[in-house]
Design a protein around this nucleic acid. Sequence first.
DNA 1: CCCGTATGATTCGGTGCCGAACGACCGTGG
DNA 2: CCACGGTCGTTCGGCACCGAATCATACGGG
Lengths: 190, 190
Amino acid sequence: MPSQRSIRQAESLAEAKLGGIPVRREQMAAVANIYRAASAVRQHLENSVLRGSDLTWTGFVVLWVVWVWGESETRHVAEEAGISKGTLTGVARTLESRGLLRRTGHPSDGRLVLLGLTDDGEAFMREVFPAFNEEEAFVTSRLSDAECRGLADGLRRVVQQVEEEGEERRRTLLNGAAPTPRRSGRRARG
Amino acid sequence: MPSQRSIRQAESLAEAKLGGIPVRREQMAAVANIYRAASAVRQHLENSVLRGSDLTWTGFVVLWVVWVWGESETRHVAEEAGISKGTLTGVARTLESRGLLRRTGHPSDGRLVLLGLTDDGEAFMREVFPAFNEEEAFVTSRLSDAECRGLADGLRRVVQQVEEEGEERRRTLLNGAAPTPRRSGRRARG
DNA sequence: CCCGTATGATTCGGTGCCGAACGACCGTGG
DNA sequence: CCACGGTCGTTCGGCACCGAATCATACGGG
């Protein structure tokens, strides 16, 4: 749990390593802490409220999205849950096998699949969400309500920046260069 | 992109769903945005600077830790990188096979393994870190330096809360109950 | 020297996770 | 009716990821 000190130390060390090249320290610290906090929060929630139900963080998020938004098309659920369509297929399969989620074909458009909670799923969320929210309050308990709002606001601006300008930025960086296919991934048949 | 609006809507929807049970909205929004921002940032960095080198986020973080801290024992690297020892074994193997990382037995304690960068690894970091840092600046470009500091500070307090009181908290929540083994995981030989 | 305990790293089952390829289906235009 | 380009969800290769079991080494006390 060196967190605090070590990040600051690391900043200096990195700067020294680069020998004169300036480092955007505030930005580096912000990004490092975003990721660190996300891991810590996820880990705490998985090992407190989710562990007992044998649900992963992602599984819970998917349930939460469907619970809150009601029966939805899978692409919207994936978008909202922050995972790829391919991942959602697997997660949904898992949740379905646990009897919490139900998949239905769209009545008029045969390409679409709708995800909805089963009665068990509804009951589950009614029971577990309050406990989840309680732990959200626990992890943020060193911040006032106003500070939480400020934090959320800053993070929201980061998300907006990436969502609104990220794609353009990545195009610029590659600048026409081949987008370098991933090492993993499905190969063309043949 | 729904991000902004949808989180706020979701708060109301969740509250309605619960029918009167109060929701800690600020805390919920803060946690939701932490995770959302972490995903967005990771995705942007993987698809901009890391993709070309065929490195994953985690792989880069491990390299970064070893680069900044110098040759280190694996448990410290895992801790600092925010991954489990088991995961580190695999990631280190991958990085070693790419010729960026080197593993050495500890001279006096045969249980320990030291991780260090190869010359290629050093050169790689000298070249790629500036680009990485540049993108860290990009994703936070809607925040002033002071706002970055404030953001990092708030996140640091979240991390500290979990690190310093999380374990105790989880014990309290379970309250003696069996810690519910994970569904996955290695089974006893039998 | 040998045991027992402590402390490392590694193995491994099960799942998550991405993104390209793919197949099912839609709608429009010939 | 039948191409045909567009839009879905699914498949799948390869890696990440956790955590309990396991293996390997260290060290103190008989």
